[in-house]
Structure formats: structure tokens, C-alpha cells
């Protein structure tokens, strides 16, 4: 059993609604037509490629290939996180990579081995979609975490340095900035756990139901996934700040000014 296949032409029919959108954008002089088109094109192309990869990965279902694919996904996520945080990829790649990899691996293996109890931990059908969901959600929280942390200290540098001089402890001086950025990063997920099901039905559940699962099974998966997302986000955000301290600050605890992407 599976969802009914979509005819390519009927899928394309969704483009029809772009006509009024374009018209209204033009009348209201919202200059987003170009950006919108690029985004739509990227979505279609990227997802088509993923469709092709996934067919390929599912066919071979090789643990090595699946792992390599996930590592590539993590690397891409890493770059995107660092760029969106206005930080230099060259400096932050390693710390962010490991802060994603560690919690991600632990949670993913736990999910497959203990929660779903599949025999082949590297089964493409579970590993890749679940991995993708975890990564996609971590992206947002690490960006908020790193960005708030470093830009917070940069904006507030005098106060930060003054704390260093008074407490003579880097941890004590960093604490308020860490606290603020970490809370900003994980609060949205906590809030969304509180309203899930009331307001929105999550995409994964919808997909599973369309794919033929009974609602109870889909819901159990959804609960498991929400836990996993929350844990991965929590630890990867925390680790990304901790692991990056070494590149973020010089050995005298002063913020390195060369870590930011210069705008201009």
C-alpha cells in the first residue's frame, strides 16, 4: 500500500496559482517575484535530485554509502549554518561539524536500535529521512544559538571585558551570553511541542498517513521524532557554542574580531 502517484502534469498544474500571485506582487510593487521564482526553481530541482539519489540509495542500501550520504548532508548543513550565522566557514567548520555529528549519531542510532528496533541500523529507509529531519531542525536552532552568542558579545564587548576583569573567569563572563542565546535557540521547539496537533499536523505524520500507515502508528513515530529533534537540537546547539570557543576567543579571552564575515 502507498500513496497514489502524482501525474507530472497534474503536479505542474500547481503553477497556475502563481499567476495571481505574480499579478498581485506587481500591483503592490512587492519586488519579490525574482527571489520567489529562484526559490521555487531551487526547490523543484533540489528535490528532484534527492528523489534520484534516494532511489539509488534505497536500491543499494549499503551501510557505507548511506553513511557517506549522511556525512555529506552534515557538511552541507554545517556550511549553511555558519554562513547564516555571519561567521567564517573556514574557522567554524570543524567545531560545528562535530557538534552536529556527535548528538546526531547517538540519537539516530538510539532511534533505530532501541525505538524502532530495526535489525539493520543503516537501513536507508529509516536512516536517511530521519537523519534529514533531525538535521533540518537543528539547522535553525544552531544558527540562532551561534548568531546570538557571538553577535551578543560583539555588541556588548565592553561589558563582557569588564566582567572578565571583575570575575577573572571566562566561564562567569560568558554565562549570560550563553544563557540568552541558548534559550533563544531552543525555546521555539519547546513551544512547538506544546501546540503540536492542536494547530498543525506535522509533515512527517501527514506523509506517513498518506503512505498508508494507520494514524496511531504515524503518531507514535511523530512523538519519537519530536523527542529526537529536541534532544539533537539541545545538545548540538550547546556543543556548537562550547566547541567554537577556541576559535572565537584568543588565549587572553578576548573575542576574535576576524571571525565575522565582513559585510560590504
Amino acid at each position: 500500500m502507498g500513496a497514489q502517484d502524482l501525474n507530472l502534469l497534474s503536479l505542474m498544474s500547481l503553477f497556475i496559482f502563481l499567476i495571481p500571485v505574480f499579478y498581485i506582487n506587481r500591483r503592490l510593487r512587492l519586488t519579490i517575484n525574482k527571489t520567489m521564482l529562484t526559490s521555487i526553481a531551487r526547490m523543484c530541482i533540489q528535490l528532484s535530485f534527492v528523489g534520484v539519489y534516494l532511489e539509488f540509495l534505497f536500491k543499494f542500501n549499503s551501510p557505507v554509502l548511506n553513511t557517506v550520504y549522511l556525512l555529506i548532508m552534515i557538511s552541507i548543513a554545517c556550511q549553511s549554518i555558519i554562513r547564516s550565522s555571519n561567521l567564517k566557514v573556514r574557522l567554524f567548520f570543524m567545531p560545528v561539524f562535530f557538534s552536529l555529528l556527535i548528538p546526531f549519531t547517538i540519537i539516530l542510532i538510539f532511534f533505530n536500535a532501541v525505538v524502532v528496533r530495526i535489525d539493520n541500523l543503516f537501513e536507508a529507509k529509516y536512516l536517511i529521512p530521519i537523519g534529514g529531519m533531525l538535521l533540518g531542525n537543528c539547522l535553525r536552532s544552531i544558527i540562532i544559538g551561534l548568531n546570538n552568542f557571538y553577535s551578543g558579545i560583539k555588541k556588548d564587548e565592553k561589558v563582557y571585558l569588564y566582567s572578565i576583569s571583575i570575575f577573572n573567569s571566562r566561564i562567569q563572563a560568558l554565562k549570560p551570553y550563553f544563557k540568552e542565546s541558548f534559550l533563544a535557540a531552543i525555546t521555539p521547539t519547546i513551544a512547538s511541542m506544546a501546540t503540536i496537533g492542536l494547530v498543525s499536523l506535522p509533515g512527517m505524520m501527514t506523509g506517513q498517513i498518506l503512505g498508508g500507515s494507520i494514524p496511531m502508528v504515524a503518531i507514535k513515530y511523530q512523538i519519537a521524532i519530536m523527542f529526537s529533534i529536541f534532544y539533537t537540537e539541545y545538545f548540538s546547539t550547546m556543543l556548537s557554542v562550547l566547541f567554537s570557543l577556541k576559535v572565537g576567543f584568543n588565549e587572553l579571552d578576548v573575542l576574535n574580531q576576524n571571525i565575522f564575515i565582513s559585510k560590504g
Binding site: 556588548d156 565592553k158 561589558v159 571585558l161 569588564y162 566582567s163 572578565i164 576583569s165 577573572n168 549570560p176 588565549e251 587572553l252 579571552d253
Partner: peptide
């Protein structure tokens, strides 16, 4: 020397009152 090795020791002996008293 002001450097990594001694900075903690040195900072523990200095009180600095900045012009704007940059207390958090």
C-alpha cells in the same frame, strides 16, 4: 609578561574601573 601563562594571576591583582562602569 602579559600573556596566556600569567593572565589569570595578573587579572586577579588588578581592579579596573572603566570610564562608563560597564557593569552588566
Amino acid at each position: 609578561d602579559i600573556g596566556k601563562e600569567h593572565i589569570k594571576n595578573i587579572r586577579s591583582q588588578i581592579f579596573y574601573l572603566s570610564q562608563d562602569i560597564d557593569l552588566k
